[in-house]
């Protein structure tokens, strides 16, 4: 079957099997390998992308289900060579080690800040609770998100 959607702002149309998972569509068909996968059961969250502006686990969405919708991946965050503050925050606060969960974490964190520009530690922890990081122990991820929130708040006031 044919599927059309918008990925990182650009329209794409591809021939796919009905069963193709969105994560494989992005990785294998579009070669957007920033989105990862780490389990079979929607538990790890390394595959999180946005669909119509909301974080979803792309291993549990069929590519066909994304037809007609807007998908955004980690590759779409940097704009005109400027990093998203969440990306910068993860570097500044050592919010990553092996980098495998990082794209999913960043996409979820970006969505959180869009809805809640000043989240508490608890709110950040709940937001990322469907995503597993085996390296960082999460404290530095929480710091990274708070760094981005503080940076964006400073941008607004200045």
């Amino acid at each position: 079957m044919q599927v059309s959607m918008t990925v990182n702002g650009a329209p794409v149309t591809e021939e796919i099997e009905g069963r193709m998972l969105l994560v494989h569509f992005l990785r294998d068909q579009l070669r957007l390998t920033g989105t990862h996968w780490g389990c079979d059961t929607s538990n790890c969250g390394t595959c999180v992308v946005w669909m119509d502006g909301e974080p979803v686990k792309s291993c549990t969405v069929l590519a066909a289900m994304a037809g007609g919708r807007e998908v955004r991946t980690v590759e779409g965050l940097e704009q005109d060579g400027v990093l998203d503050p969440v990306q910068q925050g993860f570097m500044e606060c050592h919010g990553l080690q092996c980098g495998f969960c990082t794209p999913g974490m960043i996409m979820t964190a970006r969505a959180l800040l869009d809805r809640n520009p000043d989240p508490s530690d608890g709110e950040i922890r709940e937001a990322i609770s469907g995503q597993i990081c085996r390296c960082t122990g999460y404290t530095t991820i929480v710091r990274s998100v708070k760094w981005a929130a503080a940076y964006e708040a400073a941008q607004v006031t200045s």
């Binding site: 990785r27 294998d28 070669r31 957007l32 390998t33 920033g34 989105t35 990862h36 991946t73 980690v74 590759e75 965050l77 940097e78 990093l83 990306q87 910068q88 993860f90 570097m91 990553l96 980098g99 495998f100 990082t102 794209p103 960043i106």
Partner: peptide, 16 residues
Amino acid sequence: DPRFIRGMGRYVDDIN
């Protein structure tokens, strides 16, 4: 980190 936070890491399954 600059490559990882952009989704530009290169893991084995990324190789095609």
